[in-house]
Amino acid sequence: MQQIAIHTEFIQLGQVLKLKDYISSGGEAKVFLENNSVFVNGDRETRRGRKLYHGDTVTIGAEKYTVTKS
């Protein structure tokens, strides 16, 4: 499981997709989420603006990430 370290209170799901190179721009997030299975804490998520906080887990395909506070 990989970690996503944040310096703020939260990070949006669309930002995570861009940070991990699933998309190249924020505008692609909506289409990506409609066509791929993305789960936040085990629940299917389709909102690119979903706020992720310390301790949340994101699963994209076979990859799993945990949000950590740095």
Rank of each mutant, 00 (worst) to 15 (best):
65 Y>Q: 06
37 S>E: 09
33 L>W: 13
20 K>A: 07
53 Y>S: 11
43 D>A: 14
70 S>D: 03
37 S>P: 04
55 G>V: 00
31 V>T: 13
63 E>R: 01
6 I>K: 05
10 F>D: 01
6 I>C: 00
44 R>L: 09
34 E>M: 07
19 L>T: 15
39 F>K: 10
47 R>N: 12
37 S>G: 14
34 E>F: 05
63 E>A: 04
35 N>S: 15
6 I>H: 02
63 E>H: 06
16 V>G: 03
51 K>I: 06
50 R>C: 11
8 T>Q: 11
57 T>N: 12
20 K>F: 12
50 R>Y: 15
45 E>N: 09
49 G>D: 10
11 I>Y: 03
58 V>P: 00
57 T>A: 05
15 Q>E: 11
51 K>L: 10
39 F>N: 10
68 T>R: 14
53 Y>W: 00
70 S>W: 00
52 L>F: 05
56 D>S: 10
34 E>I: 02
27 G>P: 06
40 V>I: 08
31 V>K: 15
44 R>N: 07
69 K>F: 06
57 T>E: 07
29 A>I: 03
24 S>W: 00
17 L>P: 15
38 V>D: 10
19 L>G: 11
22 Y>P: 11
23 I>V: 11
70 S>G: 13
10 F>M: 08
2 Q>A: 13
13 L>I: 13
59 T>E: 14
46 T>A: 07
26 G>R: 01
48 R>D: 12
53 Y>R: 04
52 L>G: 01
29 A>E: 05
69 K>D: 09
10 F>E: 12
65 Y>V: 03
57 T>S: 01
49 G>R: 15
36 N>G: 14
62 A>L: 06
21 D>V: 02
55 G>F: 05
13 L>Y: 14
14 G>C: 09
41 N>K: 09
28 E>R: 13
70 S>C: 02
59 T>K: 15
69 K>P: 03
9 E>N: 09
70 S>F: 00
19 L>R: 14
67 V>C: 00
59 T>V: 13
10 F>I: 08
31 V>D: 12
52 L>V: 02
70 S>H: 00
68 T>N: 07
7 H>F: 02
45 E>L: 05
21 D>F: 06
10 F>Q: 05
63 E>I: 00
15 Q>K: 06
30 K>I: 10
